[in-house]
Structures are given as C-alpha cells and as structure tokens.
Simulated scan of single mutants.
Amino acid sequence: MSLRLSTVILPVRPWHEGGRAQWERAERLGFHTAYTYDHLTWRTFRDGPWYAAVPTLTAAAAVTDRLRLGTLVTSPNFRHPVTLAKDLMTLDDMSRGRITLGIGAGGNGF
C-alpha cells in the first residue's frame, strides 16, 4: 500500500503572479492530486479576486504532467448541466484523464 497526499490550492492568485507556480510546485513536491474550490467565494477572500475552477484547472493541466486535478466541490446549481459536462469533457481531454470531479449541492457563499 502506498500513501497518496493531496493539497488544496485556493483560486485567489492571478495566474502570472504566482497562481501557475503553485500548481507546478504541487507537482514538483510529489502531491498525487491538487484540488481547487469551485465556489463563488470563500470566507475572508470574498472581497478579493476568486478565479473560476474549470479555467484554472485547464491552465494547470497545461503546465503539469502527472498531477491529478480536481474540484472541491462543483455545484450543478450554478451551471447548466450540459455546459458543465462539455467544460469537464474538454478539461478531461486536455489533462489526459487526470480529472477528479467532486460534486455537491453547493451553497450561497459565506
């Protein structure tokens, strides 16, 4: 049996100001999976930038090779299910099957 460690990367940093580096570092450190929140906002970050999960994970897929990528958690209440399915299908293709989808009921924010 092997131990697999995962991490959460909050979608609060602009891609070219440290966001990209976080995903690359997670892979370099040997994490099995890196997740990002797919919420509208989160706690103390509600007044700052909060980037969308699917585009963030798509960009992460482009700069990593082994790291699994996932959502914590995606809510089908905020998107049309067909559009969400198409986005996830594209992300799955771009990541070569490295996507883990966490799906839940969602909420109204903090």
Rank of each mutant, 00 (worst) to 15 (best):
F78P: 01
P81L: 11
R46W: 08
T58R: 01
A59F: 03
M89K: 04
L72C: 10
R98N: 05
P49K: 07
H80Y: 07
I99N: 00
G107Y: 13
L69I: 08
N77R: 05
A53D: 03
H80F: 06
I103Q: 11
G107P: 06
H80G: 15
M94F: 09
G106D: 11
W42K: 10
A85Y: 07
R43A: 15
T90G: 10
R96F: 07
V63C: 07
R46M: 10
P81D: 12
T56K: 00
A53E: 02
D87A: 13
I103E: 11
W42H: 15
V73S: 14
L69G: 03
A53H: 01
V73I: 14
A53L: 02
D93I: 02
G104A: 08
T64H: 00
T90P: 08
L72D: 13
I103R: 09
D87H: 06
R96Y: 03
D65S: 12
T71H: 03
L101M: 13
P55F: 02
R46C: 07
F45G: 08
A62G: 05
K86L: 13
L72M: 15
T83I: 13
R66S: 14
L101G: 06
A85R: 04
D93A: 13
L57P: 04
P81W: 13
M89H: 05
A60K: 02
M94C: 04
D47N: 15
L88F: 07
T100M: 11
T90I: 10
T64F: 00
T44S: 14
M89Q: 09
Y51L: 12
A59T: 01
V63Y: 00
I99H: 00
P49V: 02
L84K: 10
A61V: 02
R79S: 08
T90C: 08
R79P: 05
T64K: 00
Y51R: 10
R43Y: 12
A59P: 10
D65P: 02
L67C: 03
L72G: 08
G97W: 08
G104V: 02
A105R: 06
L84Y: 11
D47K: 14
M89I: 00
V54Y: 07
R98L: 02
A62Q: 11
T58F: 02
T58V: 04
A105L: 12
L88I: 03
H80C: 10
P55Q: 09
T100S: 09
L91A: 05
T56C: 03
A61P: 01
R79H: 14
V73P: 15
W42M: 13
G70K: 05
L69M: 06
L72P: 13
W42E: 11
G97E: 10
A105T: 04
A60T: 05
T44K: 09
T56Q: 05
L101W: 01
R68L: 10
A61E: 01
R79I: 05
T56F: 00
T74R: 09
D47E: 15
R79M: 09
I99D: 00
D93L: 11
L101Y: 04
